[in-house]
Design a protein around this nucleic acid. Structure first.
Lengths: 237, 237
DNA sequence: ACCTGAACACCGTTCAAGT
DNA sequence: ACCTGAACACCGTTCAAGT
């Protein structure tokens, strides 16, 4: 008697889940709320996704499908940088993505492809398989273009008198936190006072890439040494 | 009529929660299961912790209380390294700690103290307030001595025939993943094939510290330059 | 001061049935 | 092939009461 509801498909379910998580937060996304959103009984979803975990897997895959093509070339550093920053830009539209990615226990083919491509960038750039392995671990979740926030704010009491007392105590109890908070409080256009997430991310990524570059240089030096050694001990000519 | 149950206290509740999470996993820890474990009705816990989130906050605090004293000295790099590796050693006994720490939204005084001390190590070592701020972001969750696992294994089908087919397809579809998995598969004494988490953590931390050391050197160089500039333009003598 | 009991408003998922 | 209904075994948390 009401208007025709379009038939559910896997893609429609995933798109609806992403839209719901984008607008209402990941905590508001349940099989039941998603079903209600689609005007359907909870169990109807199970014909299209195996369960909640598989729904979350599918949401990650759907978002990653929107990534730009892998940058070409053989210079590992600009390629890696561009790739990771593009991933960051893509995931930034979906605040739930970091926590969902972190809680995945199985990698989908799309996720495996993403990681395989990153490893390919290292290998093409001259990293050995072993060094690539370590470098991937060093990237960690940063490979997805985000880092977990390490500055959870302390719970601030609502009562203004208590708040003032807390701030005063803060000054003496956590002098460095206060110093750093005030030293960087002037950044324009930043959401959380004193924090420009893009600047901080690029700083962190570049610092790590510097460290990896040093290790690549070491690897090349030791390879050259052992090659010289082999040449010396081999038959002349 | 049964044996006397010792009165609940906040410390006893936290210790029981930690023991339960250690032995049965964080998913098995609910207000209800913890209450049952203590032979008490769920609501009895609320006299000692305000709710589940506050329980988790308290668990983190209780574990951090077991940290060794902050290393002294003025050399930032060995101090930071020692501090973070000690934290890692402490948290390693509690597999639930990383995910719980990551989901905290408010920092307790104990957590704030930990971060303030790390910042103090940077500042004493010559980092400016701004550079310390960025360095803390670069450390990210690594400051807690862990990194999130970035290699979730693909779901392997139970059927052996399907598994063999998957492995064959893997070889061509994800060549770098296979190469890296086989190149590092021989590590002795590693739990997950080819992965030595301690080696990987220290590699990652040291690579990052190298990057931070470079930036500290840049900061000092530019400070020296502007000091020379100031001296030149100042009155002689 | 500390603990209990019953209830509320949720979850994900199963099973057996409908069309 | 796709969707429904009812049920199961859970959650965290409230409120009002007990001792």
């Amino acid at each position: 008697m009401s208007t025709e509801r379009p038939r559910l498909t896997r893609d429609r379910v995933l798109a609806a889940a992403i839209a719901l998580a984008d607008s209402s937060g990941i905590d508001a996304l349940s099989m039941r709320s998603l079903a209600a959103d689609q005007g359907v009984v909870p169990m109807a979803l199970y014909k299209h996704v195996a369960g909640k975990q598989e729904l979350l897997d599918g949401m990650v895959d759907a978002v990653l499908t929107g990534l730009p093509p892998l940058p070409g070339g053989s210079e590992w550093r600009p390629r890696l940088r561009e790739r990771i920053l593009a991933t960051r830009a893509t995931l930034l539209a979906h605040p739930w993505a970091p926590s969902v990615i972190e809680t995945r226990t199985h990698a989908s083919p799309i996720v495996l492809t993403y990681m395989d491509e990153l490893m390919g960038i290292f290998r093409t750039g001259g990293f050995s398989a072993e060094l690539t392995h370590l470098a991937m671990h060093a990237l960690g979740i940063r490979m997805w273009g985000f880092t977990r926030e390490v500055f959870p704010t302390p719970a601030t009491p609502a009562d203004p008198e208590q708040r003032a007392a807390m701030l005063a105590q803060f000054q003496t109890q956590f002098p460095h936190i206060v110093e750093i908070a005030t030293a960087t409080a002037g950044h324009p256009g930043s959401e959380t006072a004193g924090c420009d997430a893009q600047v901080e991310f690029e700083f962190s990524l570049d610092a790590l890439l510097d460290g990896l570059a040093l290790r690549l240089a070491e690897q090349k030096a030791s390879a050259a040494n052992s090659a010289r050694g082999r040449q010396r001990s081999a038959s002349p000519r």
